[in-house]
Amino acid sequence: MRSDLRYFIRDNYYCRLNQVKYLFKDYFVKKQYKVVDYHGEFDQELRYILPFAYWHHVNGTLEKTISCKNTKEFYFFSKNHEEKYTERVWQAGYNYYEVPNMTHSNTFDYSKWLRVPLKKQYTNSIFVYDKPILIIANKYNIEWDKPPVNYLDIPTLDKLISSLKGKYQIIYNRPLAQQIVGDNSETLDLNEHDWIRKTHPDVLLMSDLYQQHSSQVNNYNHLQLMVYANCNRFISMHGGTAAFASYFEGINIILSDPIGGMEHHFNEYETIFPQLSGAKILHARNREEVLQHVFTHY
Rank of each mutant, 00 (worst) to 15 (best):
178 Q>C: 12
178 Q>A: 14
180 I>K: 10
182 G>K: 15
183 D>N: 15
184 N>M: 06
184 N>D: 08
184 N>F: 10
188 L>W: 09
190 L>E: 10
190 L>N: 07
191 N>G: 00
191 N>E: 13
192 E>M: 02
193 H>F: 07
193 H>G: 04
196 I>S: 05
197 R>A: 09
197 R>C: 09
200 H>T: 07
200 H>L: 05
200 H>K: 06
202 D>Q: 11
202 D>I: 02
202 D>F: 03
203 V>I: 08
204 L>V: 06
204 L>I: 08
204 L>W: 02
206 M>K: 02
208 D>I: 00
209 L>R: 01
210 Y>R: 06
211 Q>I: 12
211 Q>G: 15
212 Q>F: 15
214 S>K: 14
215 S>E: 09
216 Q>G: 10
216 Q>V: 04
217 V>A: 06
218 N>E: 12
219 N>E: 09
220 Y>I: 01
220 Y>N: 07
221 N>T: 11
224 Q>V: 12
224 Q>A: 10
225 L>Q: 10
227 V>G: 14
227 V>P: 09
228 Y>V: 11
230 N>T: 11
231 C>H: 11
231 C>V: 08
232 N>I: 01
234 F>N: 08
234 F>T: 06
235 I>E: 01
236 S>K: 00
236 S>N: 05
237 M>P: 14
237 M>H: 12
239 G>H: 04
240 G>R: 01
240 G>Q: 02
241 T>N: 08
242 A>I: 03
242 A>L: 01
243 A>C: 05
243 A>K: 07
244 F>Q: 03
245 A>H: 00
245 A>T: 05
245 A>R: 02
247 Y>N: 04
251 I>V: 03
251 I>Q: 01
252 N>W: 00
253 I>K: 01
255 L>V: 10
255 L>T: 09
258 P>L: 07
258 P>D: 02
258 P>I: 00
261 G>T: 01
263 E>K: 03
264 H>A: 05
265 H>Y: 12
266 F>S: 04
268 E>M: 07
269 Y>N: 07
270 E>C: 11
272 I>K: 10
272 I>T: 14
272 I>N: 15
274 P>T: 07
275 Q>Y: 13
276 L>D: 08
278 G>N: 15
278 G>S: 15
279 A>W: 11
279 A>P: 15
281 I>Q: 11
284 A>I: 07
284 A>Y: 11
285 R>T: 13
285 R>G: 15
286 N>L: 14
286 N>Y: 15
287 R>E: 12
288 E>G: 04
